[in-house]
């Protein structure tokens, strides 16, 4: 997308208006009953007064979320490749993946700490588990998405399975691999944050702090923390989307 296009009021005005309405409503509620929501001004001063703590803890959360995301993404794509080559393996493994997806993943957290300890490791693992399924499904769909006519061209040339995978199925799955990353990336922050809240453990990470602040009725800080997490969610989604549109364009998909 061109920058000039983004600057046109028809692009940004609806978003700006919607944001203004939400913030206005927030402020209205906050000023009438202080028990429910802190005012925007008090959240802002909590943010500016504790920016160091907030960003340091956000960094800890990202330290859990991003390795979890990367690990599960790689495993999901490799597994999808293996499954694309064998119907038997698909039949064996896909139901397990679906079972994992419909389980209350958060409930895995406490038993995980039993052997992963109270450090950041169980949080990494939980972020990995929660992002695994969307990555896997998108990769599976992507590997099956190659144009039918192109598959036929490969078949009539008697291309090997490896050649078809390497020269057709894998490159054709690129848009789906990006879709997988776009969905999983912000989800990994959700996973890490929730793990921090459920598990307790080492006293780092914004999820952990938000919980503590809330229990001391430090609502200004808690909401500032949530806003910082939302900001990082937006940031990594934005990075993925920018990368996606650049790469897909360069690769002739758009």
């Amino acid at each position: 997308m061109r920058t000039a296009e983004l600057l046109r009021p028809s692009r940004w005005l609806p978003t700006a208006v919607a944001a203004a309405v939400v913030l206005g409503a927030w402020q209205l509620v906050a000023t009438s009953t202080t028990a429910v929501l802190p005012t925007l001004g008090s959240i802002w001063s909590a943010f500016t007064g504790n920016a160091g703590t907030l960003f340091a803890n956000a960094g800890d959360t990202l330290e859990e979320a991003l390795p979890g995301l990367a690990g599960s993404y790689v495993v999901a794509v490799l597994l999808a490749v293996v499954m694309s080559q064998s119907r038997m393996l698909t039949r064996a493994l896909l139901p397990l993946a679906i079972a994992l997806n419909v389980s209350p993943v958060i409930a895995f957290a406490p038993p995980l700490t039993v052997f992963l300890g109270l450090g950041q490791m169980p949080r990494v693992v939980l972020a990995a588990i929660i992002t695994f399924f969307p990555s896997l499904i998108n990769a599976i769909v992507g590997l099956a998405s190659a144009d039918r006519g192109a598959v036929e061209v490969f078949e009539t040339l008697h291309a090997s399975r490896w050649e078809t995978l390497w020269r057709l199925r894998l490159p054709a799955s690129l848009p789906y691999l990006f879709a997988a990353a776009r969905i999983s990336a912000p989800l990994s922050i959700v996973g890490a944050t929730v793990a921090e809240m459920v598990l307790g453990g080492v006293n780092v990470g914004l999820g952990r702090q938000i919980q503590t602040w809330s229990s001391y009725a430090e609502l200004n800080l808690a909401w500032a923390g949530i806003a910082v997490l939302a900001f990082f969610g937006l940031l990594i989604t934005g990075i993925v989307v920018a990368l996606e549109s650049w790469v897909l364009k360069a690769r002739g998909f758009r």
Binding site: E152, V153, L157, A159, R167, L168, G252
Partner: peptide, 30 residues
Amino acid sequence: AKHLGWVPQSPALLPWRSVIDNVRLPLQVN
């Protein structure tokens, strides 16, 4: 034995390959 050429209904080109690389494809498999 690579005796068959196939031209499907849709051109079925590989979008990530340039024109010349699409034409070269049959020489790169089998």
